[in-house]
């Protein structure tokens, strides 16, 4: 398991966390290359299906990250996202998906450093957790 590299699917909002990731890049901050960013206009448009699908297809974790509460470009999209993440965190662990495999963070547009730190912290945690067992199943 030495060479196990977790895959993180990150749904990041256009206005905050995507911009933060961009800033991390332009600031030449380095962080592990395990994350696949999917830019969405708002965390409020992240359908629970996207998260379920990602995990069933073998992603080791799903990160949903958007603007701080009060900063949402669409007023309250992140509040909606928070309820959906709450639902997923009740649902998925019932079927053996560790709670750590779904993560919600608020990372503002100027927080490039925090974005890099978040990914840097997640990777060793996921390595300790081991691969998503779905990878060995023939389910979809």
């Amino acid at each position: 398991m030495e060479d196990y590299q977790p895959t993180i699917i990150a749904f990041v909002c256009n206005w905050c966390t995507y911009t933060a990731a961009d800033l991390a890049g332009t600031s030449r901050l380095s962080y592990p290359p395990n994350v696949r960013l999917i830019r969405v206009m708002c965390t409020g448009m992240v359908d629970p299906k996207y998260v379920i699908k990602a995990l069933l297809e073998g992603a080791d974790a799903v990160l949903i990250s958007g603007c701080h509460i009060g900063d949402c470009h669409y007023m309250n999209g992140n509040l909606k996202a928070r309820r959906r993440v709450k639902l997923l965190k009740e649902l998925l662990p019932r079927f053996g998906f560790d709670e750590q495999r779904v993560k919600l963070t608020w990372i503002g547009a100027s927080d490039g450093i925090q974005f890099a730190e978040t990914i840097t912290e997640m990777v060793p945690e996921l390595k300790a957790l081991g691969p998503n067992e779905v990878r060995n199943q023939m389910v979809l």
């Binding site: 309250n76 509040l79 709450k86």
Partner: peptide, 13 residues
């Protein structure tokens, strides 16, 4: 899932 509030489920973040 039709409503949402400020200050709830803070443990998630």
């Amino acid at each position: 899932l039709s409503i949402f509030r400020e200050g709830e489920f803070l443990e998630l973040t």
